[in-house]
Design a protein around this nucleic acid. Structure first.
Lengths: 335, 335
DNA sequence: GTGAAAGCGCTAACAC
DNA sequence: GTGTTAGCGCTTTCAC
């Protein structure tokens, strides 16, 4: 592997000149040609490690996400990758497997790798914050996505969960439903917490009781979701509608309701979350909350670029992106 | 940020000793304690860039995939990440946006980053190979996943597309269907090519004609898929079954058929590809080919680890993983 | 077993 | 504008 020194020798210039050429500084036109020729002939390619050692800049951004294997996560990653690509950054991807301990470990790891910035979806509302703040204190820029967490001062991009949930409930309530079940998630997760909050707030505003029997706390997985749906349906024979607050439990809800022999939008109305595809192939299609996934990634990358350039205007900012609601006959009008 | 030198000073040893300690060599027990104490107190953490510069090892693996935003890709990435994690490797993720030129560029980029190995899903069967081989020649280990491509000598992990497709067709044919449409993909893509091959082979083996009108070449996207389905259905009013050969077109096929007012498994039978969730929520569920996605990632990582350790036994190996077939009433028995 | 020192490939300060 | 050179933090001989 040819080095800058070889190029200097081969082009009869010096390492300084070659380095300057490489970094876009003024170089005599004649030397520029000689250098380009040498680079070409030697197949030279810069050693980013050596460069990084010197400059402390790696042009790498770490992404730390609870789990990689769902479309939500990947679309975010893709959004980030595409945005950062134009700036020459590459991304180091880690998952925390929904575990604060692993999250802490990976954070340390990213620090060791000297990433220039980190985009992170915190595992939980309470414990993730401290670790993230420590990382920030060590000097790397960070941006939170999808979820907020306690004790961190940095930019964040989240979607408007409370409002989405509230609007969904409005829609359901205004069609005459009174016993509305919700498949909530672990309240340590920021989004799960906010979505339940919107549910409760809507009930209160409409003077409807908050009935604990109608609130099912699932683990937000498909299997856990099924269990929760069935529990709610068994405890509440008068339940007419169910709001599933994430993608996985939306699937379980549809499946559980179908398995019970009900028709969606008849015996049971369903409102779900994320992923339009599904909405299109059930009969009737499912009403859904659609999050601006790509935008979350893009916005987060935008923030990060800005902060990595040490532009600290309006720090910290929280960007709350609006969600869209698709309504279909999956919510029956029983008025 | 404390360096090895600080640790040496603080522990009254030398940089050599600290380095030896860090790399697991014998160190006098007394020094070991002093060093550990110093590391603790200084919050020392090794600079992987400096280490990499010296050793030419980055403990980083590049992953290059045509697109990040589908579950197929991410499950593979997750499988790789989890496997490599245990060995201390991290992953640098890039997407080639289905473009050989970008693929080449990113390959070069990963080389510059001095990744120790690369796992790549080539964009196409013909042109990707040359670029990949060049990268391999430069000294990094590489493993192909999902798709093979011309002119590359390295390990590969793919799923058994031809056979999967063949078995699907057997199933459909044996239920009496004769006019079977296929939503194929760009034949430059290895998997698309193989799946169509299995389709044709089955028809031949059953002495059925290969009718070009029944073969639709889609771009493997949801929108393109819909168009292709409708074309086939319009050109062939006697078509009774459709085989969609990837996830996106499976969705479009279901949707297009539903939009035409047909009942799945009645007027039109459908066989699809990937992603069990869908299969569960349509009525009837869709028959599907299920690929061993996680295994592909894991196996690829396994190969790579082996090769990075310079263990060249059985090089190159092609691992063809078996797919599973789920059959449902979406394929009507018309005998 | 250990310390001293060379050097990995690069950047940037310096003197010209 | 350019060449020379110190030094980023580490590993690895070498001599002890």
């Amino acid at each position: 592997m040819a080095t800058i020194k070889d190029v200097a020798l081969h082009s009869q210039t010096s390492v300084g000149t070659v380095s300057r050429y490489l970094n876009g500084y003024q170089v005599k036109i004649e030397n520029r040609h000689k250098i380009e020729k040498a680079i070409e002939e030697l197949g030279f390619s810069i050693n980013l490690m050596a460069k990084g050692l010197k400059t402390n800049i790696t042009m790498t951004v770490g992404i730390l996400i609870p789990t990689l294997s769902n479309i939500y996560s990947t679309k975010i990653i893709e959004g980030i990758e595409h945005y950062l690509d134009d700036f020459g950054y590459s991304i180091l991807v880690c998952d925390s497997r929904d575990d604060v301990k692993i999250e802490k470990q990976k954070l340390k790891f990213l620090q060791d790798k000297h990433v220039d910035g980190i985009i992170i979806m915190p595992v939980d509302r309470y414990d993730s914050g401290k670790n993230i703040q420590e990382t920030i204190d060590s000097g790397v820029s960070a941006v939170l996505i999808d979820r907020l967490t306690q004790g961190v001062t940095c930019d964040a991009v989240v979607s408007d969960n409370v409002n989405a949930s509230y609007v969904v409930m409005q829609h359901i309530i205004e069609r005459g439903h009174r016993k509305i079940g919700i498949i909530a998630g672990d309240q340590k997760i920021y989004t799960a917490y906010e979505r339940l909050l919107g549910y409760k707030r809507a009930l209160q505003d409409y003077n409807l009781p908050i009935d604990d029997n109608l609130i099912g706390y699932s683990d937000y997985t498909k299997i856990g979701g099924s269990k929760t749906v069935n529990e709610i349906l068994e405890k509440n024979t008068d339940c007419t509608a169910i709001f599933a607050t994430n993608y996985e439990t939306t699937i379980s809800t549809v499946k559980a309701v179908l398995d019970r022999g009900y028709t969606i939008g008849q015996e049971i109305s369903i409102f779900g979350y994320d992923q339009t595809e599904l909405a299109e192939i059930t009969e009737p299609p499912i009403s859904l909350v659609i999050q601006p996934i790509e935008d979350i990634g893009k916005k987060a990358a935008e923030f990060l670029i800005k902060r990595m350039k040490r532009d600290m205007a309006n720090f910290p900012s929280i960007k709350r992106l609006a969600t869209k609601i698709i309504t279909t006959d999956s919510i029956r009008n029983i008025l």
